[in-house]
Nucleic acid binder design. Sequence first.
DNA 1: AACCGGATTGGCAGCGCTGCCAAAAACAGT
DNA 2: ACTGTTTTTGGCAGCGCTGCCAATCCGGTT
Lengths: 335, 335
Amino acid sequence: MDGFQPPGRLVTLTDVAREAGVGESTVSRVLRNHGSSSKRARERVAEAVARLGYVPNRLAGSLAGPGASAQLAGVIVPSLANVVFPDLLRGLTGALDAAGIRCVIGVSDYDPDREEALAAALLSWRPAALLLTGLEHNPGTVALAKAGGVRVVEMIDTDGAGIDAVVGFSNRAVGAASARHLVARGYRRIAYLGHDLQVDLRAGKRLAGFEAALGEAGLSLHGTEIRPGPSSPGSGRAGLEALLARHPDLDAVYFSNDDMALGGYFACLSAGLSVPGRIALFGFNGLDFAAAMPQPLSTVRTPRLEIGRQAASCLMGERPKTIDVGFELIEGATA
Amino acid sequence: MDGFQPPGRLVTLTDVAREAGVGESTVSRVLRNHGSSSKRARERVAEAVARLGYVPNRLAGSLAGPGASAQLAGVIVPSLANVVFPDLLRGLTGALDAAGIRCVIGVSDYDPDREEALAAALLSWRPAALLLTGLEHNPGTVALAKAGGVRVVEMIDTDGAGIDAVVGFSNRAVGAASARHLVARGYRRIAYLGHDLQVDLRAGKRLAGFEAALGEAGLSLHGTEIRPGPSSPGSGRAGLEALLARHPDLDAVYFSNDDMALGGYFACLSAGLSVPGRIALFGFNGLDFAAAMPQPLSTVRTPRLEIGRQAASCLMGERPKTIDVGFELIEGATA
DNA sequence: AACCGGATTGGCAGCGCTGCCAAAAACAGT
DNA sequence: ACTGTTTTTGGCAGCGCTGCCAATCCGGTT
């Protein structure tokens, strides 16, 4: 069609000023709707912008602007394979979008060193804020975050001390509530089935809360199965089969999350074990499919989008240091 | 602890130069490992950087550098609620990470106007590349992309003409292959159950391919149910129930994706309909849970991570204009 | 007609960094 | 010791934009 456009010089604000027959500052003022300008100037600038197809260069804008901080938010999540984090991002981008703030993302793969490297990399874009997941970080990450001149928000977990702002819920409390629910329903031989805890510290906190609450009821875990690797229905299915082979008498299983629980449910269907008669299942997260199952999954719904939204508002207005968004125990039909 | 750090002036390269007792250019060269420098200079700079906790300002770096293009990639996805897109991002960030390129994301909510606005917003960060989803865009988006002086990669769909590079597979072919599979298995009264097609154009293309292949076999769709809103197991479940009420005699259902199919499977379990004896189910995407189901779901696995990876390599090396990553039909036990 | 206060405007320095270039230093060969 | 490299170095302009400030313009007053 129209010959290849060599990436050569792009249209600059100076070009727009010349085209519109006004000064650069006028263009700048009009474009940002900042300071005063005449109607005539506004029109001429708008025309020139349209004619030239001008796209402002925010690298330059942020560099020149005050505090030299960009309309960017650096976000580090441990994974994108688990729905939780896309949901978080969804809440974040949705809320930040309105303010014209874009998210630059980094995926740490649950590795604190990688997280630190990413923090440095993201900070080099001089974002207005740095959003981290969880409260456990390398000392270097904390140092960077503190020295970075940015607002820091730690998301999802409130069990511990944060750097600056914290938005989430208590994973310990979730675990405890789950345990109390199972105990109240009369289950006594309860096992835990999870994915790698070294790596997913929040799951570890839930388990700790779960065991503590069991202890208060004079019980303890009746078997544990930790699967290597990330959580998935496949892992949950294999895990439940392994668990039942070792502890044929267990009557309930607490899963590290709904994906694992779904796999467990599939295992029960395949083996013809009645749920919750023969064995009760309890998950975590409250994902979409949980409510659509033939027997709705008993689980805890976490307000993931809300965490994202609240985190976003932490960046903009002045807000309390710690926001606990709570959680909701869903009494399904599987426990 | 250590009094609040006013966001005041951060450490600059000039500070490092002074601290190290060398010139700015030397620091710049050492830091980027570009050009030659003495061992002594490297050591002194490294010390100064560590002592001062210097984090380079890439806004300034990119502005000064050649072509003024940043080590950023602008990515626009229609949604984060569907696993497909996080998977895409996962492939992308994984591959781009090594090259030090960060992703800035935008979520268009399947709205072309929003996509256009996001394209302009992302382009204003002067990214090295712009990654879009699908081939259908506003004329304005295309104009921006062409004038932006950036590499453009359109992902997921290869059914049509792209702006620059295209990485994906043929959704039409997926639909056709799915139809041929069902026909070959002897199903004749086949219905389609999908989510909003106006919005998800790729699903529309699959359906078109599906119907075309049915036509070749002398068949046509035996019922259609389009659910408003996004795809989800809940929607799939309700949809299948509605479909069966209208067409009690259908013997197979083609779902717009695995989430919908999972819901359909749950509906069958609840209603006690044998799968695939009474009714066969066929999905799309090949998600994790599909293989863990009591009866593995018959579906088409799409190489989502691979698309992300290939898209990343499109940005860096010179690559063919269009990469078809193909797909794989999974003969599960539900169709 | 000269004057005044506020609205509007343009020039220009400078944000932190990189590229270029010439100067300085280190090294090599005679 | 002296010249001819080669390596290493620092100064400085300038990337595109914004903030500041002084200059200019406008309408309404005396």
